[in-house]
């Protein structure tokens, strides 16, 4: 029973954190059309910076090295991790959001990911290189002392609340005039500019907000597990987030939930317990990645709008008398111009 409860708690935390990642990417891609091909790097930034702010000074005698080690209280360290992730988003945005084709932005994110990965891995002094950080201080330790699952369940509640806040935030943003500007920029950036809006600023906002949210997910991840090494944030992980967003439905946060559930939780968990092939230790993760990559491609082919498509905006309005109730001006009555949506 203890084991099952612990497992369920882990599933829920996984679900909540992936939800947060997917919502972050949704704000970047679904709202503003920004292709971020290294979502997971922002996760790592949040997680690592949380860790080095919350952990005490590195104990070099045990051959563990990392920067800072400020031993801040965890809420402050959490903030630091989130700020770090947002700052990385800002930097990438500065380079790539300047009126460039979306290929270039994608290249810059990909290059940033490769670079950060190499830098963090090869450099022992930053975040302990390839071995990564462990024994990272977890929150709620003083309260959760009685039972091994107590921490897990407190954390389920905590991450659930954080997810709820992120979700409410994202939905309000979507409905707001700012969200509408973002979606217009996704459709045609130049036109938005030509109507007097600084589309660069709006895109940057989407980039940074998305990075901050992914960073929050990153902090939660390391808070729950208490450790992170570069092996935990490979390109494949970025794909899980993309697959969840595309399967669930871009530009709809309900889609983010469905996608995280289907891809990040059900698919990932279902494949986790397939026994390993001794001669081929990487077979299962490799197959998983093949399927995830295929899923991304197939979902774009068969259902680009996702399981839960973007909702059509509707407004409270005072009905008017339609001056052209008979039909569209300049066209024959009953002509070709009945609302074309039926064919879509």
């Amino acid at each position: 029973m203890t084991l099952i409860l612990g497992y369920v708690a882990t599933l829920l935390v996984t679900f909540f954190t992936y939800n947060i990642f997917v919502i972050g990417l949704n704000i970047q891609f679904g709202y503003a059309g920004i292709l971020n091909f290294t979502v997971i790097t922002f996760m790592a930034f949040g997680a690592y910076f949380y860790a080095v702010f919350v952990m005490p000074h590195a104990d070099n005698s045990s051959q563990v090295f990392y920067i800072l080690g400020l031993h801040w209280p965890w809420p402050l360290a959490m903030l630091a991790g989130i700020v770090a992730s947002g700052a990385l988003g800002y930097l990438v945005g500065l380079i790539a959001l300047k009126r460039l084709r979306s290929d270039y932005l994608a290249i810059v994110t990909l290059a940033t990911g490769t670079l950060v990965y190499g830098l963090f891995g090869n450099n022992n002094k930053l975040f302990d290189g390839w071995s990564g950080l462990f024994n990272v201080n977890q929150p709620f330790q003083s309260v959760a002392t009685n039972h091994p699952n107590e921490f897990s369940w407190i954390f389920v509640v905590f991450s659930g609340v954080v997810m709820l806040v992120v979700w409410l935030f994202a939905n309000r943003l979507y409905a707001s005039p700012l969200g509408r500007s973002m979606r217009a920029i996704r459709e045609d950036q130049d036109v938005v500019d030509s109507f007097g809006k600084n589309s660069f600023k709006v895109r940057m906002l989407a980039m940074v907000i998305g990075s901050v949210i992914v960073g929050i997910g990153g902090v939660l991840t390391i808070q729950y597990i208490g450790a992170l090494s570069p092996a935990g944030w490979t390109t494949g992980e970025t794909f899980v987030v993309w697959a969840a967003l595309l399967v669930g439905g871009r530009a709809n946060n309900l889609g983010a939930i469905v996608g995280s559930l289907l891809v990040a939780v059900i698919f990932n968990e279902a494949t986790r317990y397939i026994p390993q092939v001794p001669s081929h230790p990487n077979l299962i993760p490799n197959l998983r990645n093949v399927i995830i990559g295929g899923l991304v491609i197939l979902s774009i082919w068969f259902r680009p709008q996702g399981v839960v498509p973007e909702k059509k905006a509707s407004f409270l309005e005072v009905p008017l008398v339609d001056k052209y109730a008979q039909g569209f001006p300049g066209e024959e009555p009953g002509g070709t111009l009945s609302p074309a949506a039926s064919e879509a």
Binding site: R172, P177, L178, R183, A184, E187, G196, K197, E310, A313
Partner: peptide, 29 residues
């Protein structure tokens, strides 16, 4: 024509008006 294809016709109009309160992050929230 460069309409915002995946926005409704009404939204196409709404989006272009300048100086809306909810266009800043603070205002939106």
């Amino acid at each position: 024509s460069r309409e915002f294809a995946n926005l409704t016709v009404l939204e196409n109009l709404l989006v272009v008006r300048q100086g809306q309160v909810g266009e800043s992050l603070f205002g939106a929230l």
